[in-house]
Amino acid sequence: MDKIAKGKRIDLKTVFPFLGLIAVMIFFQAVSGGRVFTPKNLKAILNDSFFILIATVAFSFVMAVGNLDLSMGTVMAVSCTCAAVAAKASPMLAIPAAIISGGLLGWFNGFVHVHMRLGSLIGTMATQSIFTGILVLLLDGGTLSAPISMLRWGTMGLKLTVMLLVVLLGGYFFNFTAYGKSCKAIGSSAEAARLSGVAVGRVKSMTFIVLGAAVGLLGLFSLIRTGTASATTGSDLMMNVWCAALLGGLPLSGGAASKFRAPIVGSFTMSFLSNGMTLMGLSTHDKQLIQGIIFLLTIAISFDRKNMTVIK
């Protein structure tokens, strides 16, 4: 057979996210006078990318299936609040409180999508409102604070370990297990997946639960980092994650083209971008404008017109 065409074609689409990351790094290093790659700055970038990376890795499973989740920021806020409440009894309780509450909310998202058969876009829009209601009830118009002892938990070592674990586990499940492959299969064609023996409903639910739990963990770390649980916790999480996913090249429609490197590359690109803009002294409005433009362009470039299925 045609052995000539066997070599992996260097597809612009595959390489583009890496190019983007490198471009961003070089550009800001030059423009800020070399301040990007100082230990202090790299620490700040790591702190920022910690949240985006973990959330985007979990989100990549949801996207691979062809779904979206608009409620993740609110889930983070609720988990953060639950952690703060639990911490009043005992700081160690905050850990399971955050993860379990996140997982439960994620389970609910799955329930709404699979059993009530609401498309994920509309479904998570609805659950977001419900979760916000829960949040407001829990916070009663104010904020909660963490016990001072907890604030010391957020060491660089711990964060790096957690990030590494998430990346390794995520990569393993995404590429080397039936679960990850089933996610991509469902994204490619849910009906064909069903008729090939994939437990479509269960897999989809699982992606939401995992995302919920991951975001719950982030709620805990947010509490540790800021010492506060408030209504605005996690408010820009979703936008950052979407941008990261798209900048990394994750296709909106999911399916076979979803690669695990996408959330990794995308998250770091977002962090370097965000950080770089701060180094240049841009205001939040400028940042949002630029993020918006990049978002739009990235969608335009990467949108797979061949597979223009509506988000399921």
């Binding site: 039936a178 991509k184 064909a192 061949k306």
Partner: peptide
């Protein structure tokens, strides 16, 4: 129904046999 046109041949053929191919969870 029986194919994933937007996926490679590899995924199309392997999809029904993951249980067989996996050693615990690792494929």
């Amino acid at each position: 129904e029986s194919l994933f046109p937007n996926s490679p041949i590899r995924d199309n053929i392997a999809i029904a046999s993951y249980k067989k191919l996996a050693k615990s969870t690792f494929i």
